[in-house]
């Protein structure tokens, strides 16, 4: 171990993080607060009734509802699905213009300016978690006044997707760097995690063994979405465990 003094003399460097998320299906009530928060945070356009009916609604995070059993003995299962930030992402390699690529932290970055709208990434994504601006986005007054200045507004013909609220990651990093300290677990959260009333969503550094998210990722309820595809997703789902079953049988 080098002495602390020597450490301080060296230029301060933030630890590189491996951001990940855990989704506890036991806790999810399907309230969709995360969806609304995501829309507000990330300037996601609302396309309107008609376009939404045509399947062009954009929600970077969505609550999938699955029904198990037959009426009246029916169980509803909520599964929040957002970009899984795969390590081997099928969307990245197919983009001809590097609009979709892997950034240094291992996130699937989407560079809007580079996107020419081939929509190949959206086909390649097995989670169907890429959203395309089929029409020019518009915000009805006064919604146009609440646009987040930290996030660029996308135009028609561009693919967009969940970024793990990269603007919040960068803001927290800049603050920490200014104060010459490392980021703390739970110091900041993406909008969906922040707004989840039941704390079903947990965000943090997967490389830090002490973080909540990495502890949850090791839970015996932990599972990945479509794991057989070998995409190495960074979102862990905590399947409905014994606690839920005990309460309901």
């Amino acid at each position: 171990m080098a002495p602390a003094k020597e450490q301080n003399q060296k230029a301060f460097r933030l630890k590189r993080r491996n951001w990940g998320m855990a989704v506890d299906e036991d806790r999810c009530t399907g309230c969709e607060a995360c969806v609304v928060a995501c829309h507000a945070e990330n300037n996601i356009a609302t396309v309107g009734e008609e376009q939404a009916a045509r399947g062009r609604a954009m929600h970077w995070i969505r609550i999938e509802r699955y029904y198990e059993g037959t009426f009246p003995d029916i169980k509803v299962k909520y599964q929040p699905v957002l970009c899984q930030q795969c390590d081997n992402a099928p969307c990245e390699a197919v983009c001809p213009t590097y609009a979709s690529y892997h950034n240094a932290e291992g996130l699937n970055a989407q560079i809007y300016n580079r996107c020419i709208g081939t929509r190949y990434c959206a086909n390649a994504c097995p989670y169907e978690d890429r959203y395309f601006n089929f029409v020019n986005p518009a915000w009805d007054e006064p919604l146009n006044l609440q646009l987040n200045p930290d996030v660029s507004v996308r135009s028609v013909g561009i693919m967009e997707k969940c970024t793990f609220c990269i603007q919040r990651i960068r803001a927290a990093e800049i603050n920490a760097e200014k104060e010459k300290r490392q980021l703390k677990d739970g110091e900041f959260n993406p909008a969906c995690v922040q707004s989840c009333p039941t704390e079903a969503l947990v965000f943090g550094d997967l490389d830090d063994p002490e973080s909540r998210v990495s502890r949850l990722a090791k839970s015996n309820r932990a599972a990945k979405l479509l794991p057989d595809l070998g995409t190495k997703p960074k979102v862990t789902y905590l399947r409905r465990g014994s606690w839920y079953d005990e309460q309901n049988t």
Partner: peptide, 9 residues
Amino acid sequence: AYPLMTGGM
């Protein structure tokens, strides 16, 4: 010249 990782390749 502009090394970018994609798809784990």
